[in-house]
Simulated assay, not measured.
Amino acid sequence: MFSTASRKAIAAFVVGAFILGGITIPLIAQAEATTEDRPAHHQKHRKLDPEQTAKRLSTEFGLDESLISKYQQEGKNDKDLYHAAFYAKVSGQSFESVLALKTETNTWKDVADTLGIDKEQAKAVRQELAAKRISLKYGLNQEDIQNLFNQGYQHRDIAMAGLLAKQSNQAIEQVMSMKKVNNTWHDVAAELGIDLKALKQEAGRNKHNPKS
């Protein structure tokens, strides 16, 4: 089992490591999400300019950047755009039709209910999107990552396994198999010849000095 200190250190590192073009992806928060109104993009947003937001939505959900730009020019905020993109993906409806369901008098939970989205559907899409992010982040096979989700592994553990797989040039399944109930990710890293503390410090330096 993790010690309290190890859990805090790993959680901070994993959350800090997952920044997609300026949008922080709190995988732990995703893993603990329990309602339909907490989609995969449920996250703390750094302020992006409209062009960056359009690019992220295009990458994440396969939407046309010009379509996103149109709604931005109409005054739609990032939160609504991300919610609409997520629920459109879950429900199989168009982005435009889902966005139109959100009014000033309802919530995104109401929209999810209208679309008939349940927790398991939302969870499956959250995992799919998380698998895609980890794959892009670490250059790993998305199907291998998705298989780990299907086996019941938690976001934070898959993220850490992905990080160590990249650093050690090992298959993510092999790295995951090294994590037992009686060891920590620091132990796994050490077994792979990786200094997780130094890696965390390097990630912190890169975060504050992205051009260095």
Results as ranks from 00 to 15, higher is better:
7 R>I: 01
7 R>Q: 01
7 R>F: 08
11 A>S: 13
12 A>D: 11
15 V>P: 01
16 G>T: 07
17 A>W: 06
18 F>L: 11
18 F>M: 01
19 I>L: 09
19 I>F: 04
20 L>Q: 05
20 L>S: 09
21 G>T: 00
28 I>R: 12
29 A>W: 04
31 A>V: 13
33 A>T: 01
34 T>L: 13
34 T>Y: 13
37 D>A: 12
37 D>S: 15
38 R>E: 14
41 H>F: 10
45 H>K: 13
46 R>H: 15
46 R>W: 13
46 R>D: 02
47 K>I: 07
47 K>A: 00
48 L>D: 08
49 D>H: 08
50 P>C: 04
54 A>C: 07
55 K>Y: 09
56 R>A: 08
58 S>G: 12
58 S>T: 02
60 E>K: 10
64 D>A: 14
69 S>G: 09
72 Q>P: 01
77 N>F: 15
82 Y>R: 05
84 A>F: 00
85 A>C: 12
88 A>K: 04
88 A>G: 05
88 A>L: 08
89 K>M: 02
90 V>Q: 07
93 Q>H: 02
94 S>F: 00
94 S>L: 06
96 E>D: 10
97 S>F: 03
100 A>T: 07
101 L>K: 13
101 L>Q: 15
103 T>C: 14
103 T>H: 14
107 T>V: 00
111 V>C: 06
114 T>V: 14
115 L>S: 15
117 I>G: 12
121 Q>S: 15
123 K>C: 14
125 V>S: 09
126 R>K: 10
127 Q>S: 14
128 E>Q: 15
130 A>G: 09
131 A>C: 11
133 R>A: 10
134 I>G: 01
135 S>D: 08
136 L>I: 15
143 E>D: 09
143 E>M: 06
146 Q>T: 14
147 N>A: 12
148 L>F: 10
150 N>S: 10
154 Q>W: 01
155 H>D: 09
158 I>K: 02
159 A>T: 13
160 M>L: 11
163 L>F: 03
165 A>R: 10
175 V>R: 07
176 M>W: 04
178 M>H: 01
178 M>K: 06
179 K>M: 04
183 N>E: 06
187 D>Y: 03
187 D>W: 02
193 G>T: 11
194 I>V: 05
195 D>R: 05
195 D>K: 05
204 G>Q: 10
206 N>F: 08
209 N>F: 15
210 P>G: 00
211 K>Q: 15
